[in-house]
């Protein structure tokens, strides 16, 4: 309360606060609307208009999306794709980042800039060749095809972030270990990684939402219904329940739940991840 009193010391502040509240409400409208829509029936909305007191409240839309819409099948796929991609990306990028951050060697800059450039690449450029490549490697329509692509494509961003962070680690610690006869591999694994953990957590949280939310690559590299992740499933939900918006919206909310949970519980890391590369 004291906090609030201190804040509202001038009328300006009150005005700003009101504007803030209004903006926030506007920002929340889409999500709130979805929540309300998802517990109503379509006929109810259709015949009585959206702005009306719901005739009945139902969880049936969630059930329909989950069972008949097949989301129960798509959701595990999302995890099977996201988690290995995430682990592989973090593993490889932390290796690469270590080399880039702590060694002077020919090509360091070039490799670094290639990674940074690649992370800004309009990924559509890669669509056709990556499809051909994946097929060529016999990975088309397998989880691994998608996992390898995600791993490779996210390497740029992760290496960039982790490298910048690793450079801030004091060199003395590593020197000390080296003098003790530690191999470089052990130094990376036993000293660098633990020290970089905050950055890894931050980047990993961010990557989780990115990979989990991917839609384009899933529809390009996968063919079978039983392999598809939730984002692709949601799109076909729209094909299936074309006019039944409450079911579609309920499905969308269900599909968002994992990333939302990750975000809510790991918010700090998520935010750190976003800012890590931009400001130091």
């Amino acid at each position: 309360m004291k906090n609030a009193q201190a804040y509202f010391k001038s009328p300006w502040r009150v005005l700003i606060f009101i504007v803030l509240v209004l903006t926030t409400i506007i920002w929340l409208v889409p999500i709130m609307t979805s929540l309300v829509t998802s517990i109503r029936t379509f006929n109810d909305i259709l015949y009585r208009g959206f702005i009306s007191w719901p005739e009945e409240i139902t969880l049936g839309n969630f059930k329909t999306a989950w069972e008949r819409g097949g989301l129960s099948r798509y959701l595990p796929n999302s995890f099977i794709i996201t988690i290995p991609s995430l682990l592989l990306t973090m593993l490889f990028s932390s290796m690469g980042a270590y080399a880039l951050a702590r060694f002077n060697f020919r090509g360091n800059r070039l490799i670094f800039f290639t990674f940074v450039g690649g992370m800004l690449l309009p990924f559509q450029v890669l669509m056709l060749p990556v499809f051909k490549l994946t097929d060529f490697l016999g990975l088309y329509d397998t989880y691994w095809g998608l996992i390898f692509f995600h791993t490779a494509f996210q390497l740029g961003f992760c290496s960039f972030m982790l490298r910048n962070y690793m450079r801030t680690v004091p060199g003395e610690i590593l020197e000390a270990a080296r003098i003790d006869g530690c191999s470089e591999f052990r130094i990376w694994w036993r000293i660098m990684l633990p020290l970089t953990l905050p950055a890894i957590a931050a980047v990993a949280t961010l990557e989780f939402t990115w990979i989990f939310n991917d839609y384009l690559w899933a529809i390009i590299l996968l063919r079978s219904e039983k392999l598809k992740p939730i984002t692709a499933g949601l799109a076909s939900l729209q094909g299936q329940f074309v006019t039944d918006w409450p079911v579609i919206v309920a499905g969308a909310l269900l599909g968002t739940l994992p990333t939302l949970l990750v975000f809510l519980f790991l918010q700090r890391y998520f935010i750190e991840g976003l800012t890590l590369g931009a400001t130091k």
Partner: peptide, 10 residues
């Protein structure tokens, strides 16, 4: 039979 149903437009 491994049967996949894909959204018509896709």
């Amino acid at each position: 039979v491994i049967h996949s149903t894909i959204n018509h437009e896709d």
